[in-house]
């Protein structure tokens, strides 16, 4: 049976993420180890919490270099919600805190005048070239966002007070602003496509 390794950076909804992988017939191991982050065949970086607090946990655990290195090298990695924003260099949520810097961008706040946090289902439109992402509806829980699909990545967009990034993919690296584990059958099939792509890349 294949296995994914989940990074515990604090109080993310790990049980929900683990359940999605169990439903896909996959084993789950939870870790805080930098060695695991470097060597895991399939790694999941769930993210719930504040940008600065989780960035600090990543540094404390020594995860910064292994995470950034494996994403740059295209090793199978799934980042969820705050996990996507952590790929950026920083965030308006926590000025001064450094993200992994894999994507040259800063996460910004949702527009004034829209419901914040965005809690609910929104349309996702996959751009040309996406292999894993497809059009659908996904469950979001966010107050911050990335504004544009970075060069070298394919991506999907959504709209809540303006367009922003729903998810990006590059090979077997997938980073979602929404929660695939909570996005019904559509989200479950995305998880399974990522597992398949990860299997090819391992």
């Amino acid at each position: 049976m294949s296995e994914v390794v989940l990074i515990r950076t604090g109080t993310a909804n790990l049980a929900s993420v683990a359940a999605a992988f169990h439903r896909a017939g996959c084993g789950v191991r939870v870790t805080t180890s930098a060695d695991d982050a470097a060597t895991a065949a399939r790694l999941v970086l769930p993210g719930v919490g504040a940008f600065g607090a989780v960035a600090e946990v990543i540094d404390t655990l020594g995860l910064r270099a292994p995470l950034a290195d494996r994403i740059r090298a295209g090793r199978p990695t799934l980042a969820i919600c705050l996990g996507l924003q952590l790929l950026a260099g920083g965030s308006e949520e926590s000025p001064g805190a450094a993200g992994l810097g894999v994507i040259g961008a800063t996460a910004t706040a949702l527009a004034d005048g829209v419901r914040r946090p965005q809690l609910g289902w929104n349309r996702v439109a996959a751009g040309a070239g996406c292999r894993l992402l497809s059009d659908g509806s996904a469950y979001f829980a966010n107050s911050f966002k990335l504004d544009a699909v970075p060069d070298g990545w394919h991506g999907a967009l959504t709209d809540h007070g303006g367009e922003f990034v729903a998810a990006v993919e590059r090979g077997a690296v997938l980073a979602c602003q929404f929660h695939p584990e909570l996005s019904g059958a559509w989200g479950q099939s995305l998880v399974e496509r990522w597992l398949a792509a990860a299997g090819e890349a391992v």
Partner: peptide
């Protein structure tokens, strides 16, 4: 909650 989570691909 555990038993429901195992089958539920939705926010809870």
């Amino acid at each position: 909650v555990r038993a429901v989570r195992a089958v539920l691909p939705l926010p809870l």
